Computed example of a mutant assay.
Amino acid sequence: MHIQARCRVALALPILVTAALAGCSSLNGAAHNVASMVTPYKVEVVQGNFVSSEQVEALQPNMSRQQVRDILGTPLVTSVFHGDRWEYIFTIKRAGLEPQVRKLTVFFEGDLFTRSEGDEMPSEAEFVASLGSKKSQGKVPVLEATDAQLSRFPAPQPEELAQPEPPPAATSYPPLESGAY
């Protein structure tokens, strides 16, 4: 009997507390105020490759595809139907701010870079400044190394710069299935 009484009290207590709170209109307004202060966290969505104006300026006609990839990174879109161009698309969506979308198309003739088209790209410093919080705009760090900072690192030797040639692509492939069953 003692256990049954404890169970009844355990069930009755939450019911009584709920009934008391439901009858109190001042708590209803307070609950609404608390609910309006709490907002869900919204994730920043970053997609693609950020391309700066400095990177676009570094592109020169007749560069190889590998040189362009070294400067801009791997393209977000390469099409089977348009093998002569690469698409670099960058999107960032942040809570409370307008989404930023930038596009750059790089054109090739064969393996050589010919031209690029797209949106005007910000400099690295401008992009970093645009990422500042809405609440406080901090100081943008210097994005260039001084001669004194660079002198701390030794220059690479010519043998370090040389990269081995990749092996030639296979021209014939073994059969997919063997003849024996």
Rank of each mutant, 00 (worst) to 15 (best):
S136C: 05
Q149A: 14
S123Q: 04
E57D: 14
V128T: 15
A125W: 02
A145K: 14
V9A: 06
I71N: 00
S25C: 06
P164W: 08
Y173M: 07
T105F: 15
S123F: 03
A95M: 00
L176N: 10
N33E: 14
S178K: 09
Q4D: 06
R8P: 00
V34A: 14
L104T: 14
G179I: 15
A148N: 13
I71L: 01
G179V: 13
E109M: 13
K134N: 07
R8S: 03
G23A: 06
P99G: 08
A31E: 00
I3G: 05
T91N: 08
G96M: 06
Q163P: 01
P164G: 04
T18G: 11
H32Y: 06
L150N: 11
H32E: 14
I15H: 03
P122V: 09
T146E: 01
V80H: 12
Y173F: 15
Q149S: 11
A162Y: 05
L176F: 10
I89H: 09
T18K: 11
S151N: 09
R8N: 01
G29Q: 04
F108D: 13
Q55P: 03
V45Y: 02
G179Y: 01
P122I: 08
I92G: 02
S151G: 11
E98L: 04
A12F: 00
E124H: 03
G48E: 00
Q100L: 14
L104W: 11
S130K: 03
L16V: 15
A58K: 14
F108E: 10
Q100R: 10
L11I: 07
G179T: 11
L76V: 11
V140F: 00
V17A: 13
E124T: 07
R8W: 01
A19H: 02
V51W: 02
M37Y: 09
